[in-house]
């Protein structure tokens, strides 16, 4: 469990990036953090593995005050993937990069090798194991950064913008990997601007603006609250936009739809009554 209690943080002592943030995330949850550029999402998630320390308030991980734990200790529990993979990758081959974390956790060379191969396959990186992380496309680099953390299967995954640079298929693969880890009791926290990714995979959403949490609740309620969308620079999911447009002309279509098939059926029904 992660408990964040009234944390404040300023990078320069003048402007406050976090101004009193509190939240509680239970073991096994899937939570998305969304909101305005500069709202403090990255700053918040970096507090979860001790990369940043609160200047006021506290972070408690599995019952222990993070203050008393080193980054290395915290990182065993909370695996963080950075927004910018350049800040995370430093070795000269993709395989080394992924096996590094595994060996640190005590995996034998054979186990590390096998886990690395499996993770690369799951993330569509097969064939890139021996490449330098610096000779990859942007999306491939992001997936390597994800692989370094996903391979170790930490109890808490904290992923900053995991879908950056990913095409539709890669996003599906990533989502199924996260759901699989989640089923095996891993907590998954993502920071993302990708509304569709959130609505399809995360039951809970925390929306932020100006260093504060503006809303925290079920994804469908947060993303349909006009006031929250406005304050946190969010837009409704595509399906909602389509459903609303249809609802205006055909009031029998509900204003909120969760699945593409529901939209399809609603349209079929409308058209089905046409002679």
């Amino acid at each position: 469990m992660i408990l964040v209690e009234d944390i404040h943080f300023s990078y320069d002592g003048i402007y406050t990036a976090l101004q009193g943030v509190s939240l509680q995330i239970e073991k096994g949850e899937r939570v998305a953090i969304m909101g305005t550029n500069g709202a403090g999402k990255t700053t918040l998630i970096k507090h979860m593995n001790g990369l940043l320390r609160p200047q006021h308030g506290r972070v408690i991980v599995d019952g222990t005050d993070a203050k008393s734990l080193s980054i290395a200790e915290l990182s065993r529990t909370v695996g963080l993937v950075w927004q910018n993979p350049d800040h995370q990758l430093f070795l000269d081959s993709v395989r080394k990069e992924i096996e590094f974390g595994l060996k640190n956790l005590g995996f034998s060379p054979e186990e590390a090798n096998e886990q690395c191969t499996q993770t690369l396959k799951n993330l569509g990186l097969e064939g890139l194991a021996e490449r330098s992380p610096f000779a990859l496309s942007g999306g491939e680099r992001k997936r390597v950064a994800l692989a370094t953390v996903l391979a170790t299967e930490p109890r808490v995954l904290a992923l900053d913008e995991p879908t950056i640079g990913q095409d539709a298929h890669q996003k599906e693969r990533l989502a199924s990997m996260l759901l699989d880890l989640n089923e095996r009791e891993r907590t998954v926290i993502v920071v993302t601007h990708d509304v569709e990714f959130v609505i399809e995979n995360f039951p809970r959403t925390i929306a932020m603006a100006d260093g504060r949490i503006v809303a925290d609740g079920s994804t469908s309620s947060v993303l349909s609250n006009e006031d929250v969308l406005e304050r946190c620079s969010l837009t409704p999911p595509q399906l909602t936009v389509a459903a609303r447009a249809l609802h205006k002309v055909f009031p029998q279509v509900p204003e909120r739809l969760a699945l593409l098939s529901e939209l399809e059926n609603a349209v079929s029904e409308i058209l089905g009554v046409v002679p």
């Binding site: 936009v241 609303r244 447009a245 249809l246 002309v249 409308i270 058209l271 046409v274």
Partner: peptide
């Protein structure tokens, strides 16, 4: 290409 357009085209048919 957009939800609005979908609604309009469905309206056209009906």
């Amino acid at each position: 290409l957009t939800g609005e357009e979908l609604a309009m085209l469905v309206g056209e048919v009906t």
